[in-house]
Structures are given as C-alpha cells and as structure tokens.
C-alpha cells in the first residue's frame, strides 16, 4: 500500500506557505488519486476554513490537518472487522461488476479463513459467465474447500439454497457466495442478487452477515457509483479492494467511506493466494504521509 497518494510529498516540498496555487494543487493531487471531486472539495474546504480562521498558512501544519481530516473520515464509527455470526454458518455474499477480480478475491478470502481454522464452503452462484464455475472449482480443489455448483445458466438462487443446506449439514463456519459479475446498470443482475438475499433470509432467518462489493482499485470515479448502485439494491456492509499493487492510488477508499459510509474491509495485492489483508486505516494513512 505504499503507493497510495504517492505524489503528496512533492507538494509539501514545493510550498512552504499556503496560497491559492497550493490549494488548487492539493485538490488536483487528491483527485488524481481517484478521490471524488465532492470528497476532495469537502476535505479541502474544511481544512482551508480552519486554517483561515486560525491564521495558519504554514503547510507543515496544514499537512497535519489533512491527516486528521482523513483519519476522521476513515474512523468514523464503523467497524471494519469481518462479522461472524453466533449461529453458523456466517454467510458472505460477494458482489461486483465484471473483471474486478471477484473469484480470485473469494479464493483468497477462503484461504485466509481456512488458515484461521474455519470450515469454509463456497457457492458458485455465477452461472452466467462462461467457465466461472470451473474457475472457482479449480480454487476449491487447490484449497481443499468444497464448492457447491449447478449447471451453467441454472438458477443462482437454487445454487445458494443447496449451498446453505450443505453448509448447515456440515456445520461449516462460513459460506462464501460468488455471484455473476455484470454491469451495475444491469437490472437483471440486481434482481438476481435480491433473490439470493431472500433465499438466505428464508433459510437462516437473517440477512447475509457480510455483503461485500469487490472493487478494482484501478477504477476511477465510477467506483463510487458502482458501490452506490449495489448498496441501494441490496445494502452493502463493506468493500474488498483488489489489485492494489497496480500503483493505483486508492483514493476511492476515502470517497466510498465518506459519501456512502461503507468501510473497506479487505485488500488484495498480488497473484498469490495469500495476498490478502484486513484493511488497516492506520497503515493507510501512514502510507499517505511517509
């Protein structure tokens, strides 16, 4: 995560005192880290107002103000730990648009949970993309984790129903459900996801314990919109941020937290199955300012 906001340091070296040029460039830096225009605007006007009313123009102090502001956004109330149900299996529903790395992220998450000694089952409810089930099965074999699947183009709701049966029968700790990756503009996808949610509720008398959206960190401002649309349709509990080794600047972490109050819970950063971490706000802010 060292690459997040990589250019910010240049700014402190360039300006010792703040002026309008400084604020303009600070805004540009935030936006070029893929922070949304609205969130960048909010952060800057907050600091700028504070600096102005307290006669601060030393950029060293402004830097601390910025750090505080970012921590404030990230720490705002919500726990970023994964939730486990006292009444297993805990159900994790994983959603997202196509190509963000959903299936790999699921394999990594499953491997992480297994390493913690948890008994995991995966459900191949992406019955849409060709070879999606095979991809998940491949990971299942590698990890020694059972994958519940049906035929291609079968009803994802039925796959989820069967996987819940299986997870209950085996007294599994966690059931992870892979879903079809389609554009957030697809009406059918949203209906399909709502149905999966209903199936879980019918069976367990509660919603999935985590509904996580997978977001590719090289995505630009559209990431916020992806999260918003899924959130409106099925209610998200967190974000899995993928491909963070791609020199992406991860500004969407701030945007999504600030504008939608959805925390990033997991971060993946490489080709290996163990390349997954719980999101650590302290580390994230540290990376911005070192």
């Amino acid at each position: 995560m060292q690459m997040l906001f990589k250019n910010l340091n240049l700014l402190w070296n360039k300006f010792k005192k703040s002026n309008s040029q400084f604020w303009e460039e600070l805004e540009e830096q935030l936006i070029s880290s893929d922070v949304s225009v609205d969130t960048a605007d909010m952060i800057i006007s907050n600091i700028r107002e504070y600096a102005y009313s307290n006669n601060i123009n030393d950029t060293g102090i402004i830097r601390d103000l910025l750090k505080k502001e970012i921590i404030k956004i990230l720490n705002c109330g919500i726990n970023e730990k994964l939730k486990f149900s006292g009444n297993p299996p805990s159900v994790y529903l994983i959603v997202g648009v196509n190509g963000v790395g959903k299936t790999s992220a699921i394999a990594k998450l499953a491997a992480m949970l297994k390493k913690q000694g948890k008994n995991v089952v995966m459900a191949a409810a992406d019955t849409y993309r060709s070879a999606a089930t095979e991809q998940l099965q491949h990971y299942g074999e590698r990890l020694g984790i059972e994958v519940v699947h049906h035929q291609k183009l079968s009803d994802p709701g039925a796959v989820v129903y069967d996987s819940l049966d299986k997870a209950l029968a085996r007294r599994s700790d966690v059931l992870i459900i892979d879903t079809a990756g389609r554009m957030q503009t697809s009406f059918n996808l949203m209906e399909e996801l709502k149905k999966i949610k209903r199936v879980v509720f019918k069976k367990l008398d509660r919603d999935p314990d985590e509904i996580l959206i997978v977001i590719d960190s090289t995505t630009g401002q559209n990431a916020r919109h992806q999260a918003e649309v899924f959130h409106r349709a099925i209610g998200l509990t967190g974000v899995i941020l993928t491909k963070t080794d791609g020199t992406s600047k991860g500004g969407i972490v701030l945007t999504i937290k600030n504008e939608l109050q959805i925390p990033v819970k997991l971060v993946t950063n490489g080709e290996k199955i163990e390349n997954i971490d719980l999101f650590d706000p302290e580390k994230y802010t540290g990376a911005i300012f070192t």
Partner: peptide, 12 residues
C-alpha cells in the same frame, strides 16, 4: 482498456 479506469489509465 476498461473504460472505467481512473487516473492510472495513462500510465497503463
């Protein structure tokens, strides 16, 4: 190239 790519697009 994914049309949703952010600022990194030019580097890619």
């Amino acid at each position: 190239l994914d049309a949703m790519t952010g600022q990194e697009a030019v580097n890619i």
